[in-house]
């Protein structure tokens, strides 16, 4: 579904990504693990076209998307949920969803506000509330719902558990489980290993802009030295 090879990105003269390779299959949840500043967010932004890749190939549904505009990439069916959430704080919940709305590709049951409120019940009770007056957890749900309104085939979820209370993180994990069951592919970035292993099929570890390890979750849990070295857990 998504296949990345040799991806590189620069900031000024500094390399921030170097020869990154990744793959996400249909219906699969892959987690990108790594410390802060390891290159997780940059990888996501590079896929989305928000950071221009300086080399490499990003193929999505068989099409090369490296170097294209973010809106074109989004229209191909790639959804992006940024780390900082970036809710339109002056817009209501419904209006936030409206901004994300795009028609569904043929053969896919489109996401509607009602379906999303079933997934995130707390949002349903605040349809006309401005995004700026919601709690962090509610905003995190809204930003995922907003992206789903575009009926993406694959979603990039950048650190969805960051800064959330443990109870909310649990609810987030449940929601991701539902999305996976719907057949959505997800590329997740995380620092929270506990959260990551609960929701993912495979893991890729990134450190200083390079991929250091890839494998299944059971493999990762078995490889204590890998976790010690790159995740310090």
């Amino acid at each position: 579904m998504l296949r990345i090879s040799g991806l590189a990105a620069h900031y000024g003269r500094a390399h921030i990504l170097d020869d990154v390779a990744l793959e996400v299959g249909p219906g699969e949840v892959v987690v990108l693990l790594g410390r802060n500043g390891a290159g997780k967010s940059t990888t996501m932004k590079a896929i989305m076209g928000l950071v221009p890749p300086s080399a490499g190939s990003i193929r999505f549904l068989g099409r090369e998307i490296a170097g294209r505009e973010p809106f074109e990439i989004a229209r191909l069916g790639l959804g992006y949920v940024p780390e900082e959430r970036r809710i339109f704080s002056e817009l209501t919940v419904m209006e936030n969803l409206e901004v994300g709305r795009r028609s569904a590709p043929p053969g896919m049951a489109p996401w509607t506000p009602e379906r999303l409120f079933a997934l995130f019940p707390s949002l349903g009770g605040m349809r006309d509330r401005p995004g700026g007056r919601m709690s962090g957890g509610e905003q995190q749900m809204l930003t995922i719902a907003r992206t789903l309104m575009g009926n993406p085939r694959l979603v990039l979820l950048d650190e969805p558990s960051e800064g959330l209370a443990p109870v909310v993180v649990e609810r987030m994990a449940e929601a991701i489980g539902v999305l996976k069951a719907e057949g959505l592919s997800i590329l997740l970035s995380e620092q929270n290993l506990h959260f990551a292993r609960a929701v993912s099929d495979r893991a890729t570890i990134i450190e200083k802009g390079r991929i250091r390890w890839s494998g299944t979750i059971p493999d990762l849990m078995a490889a204590e030295e890998v976790r010690e070295q790159y995740l310090s857990v």
Partner: peptide, 16 residues
Amino acid sequence: YLGAGFSGGHPGSRDP
């Protein structure tokens, strides 16, 4: 707040 859960991996917690 804490939930029954796993996140943050606080001590003694059960992994659901």
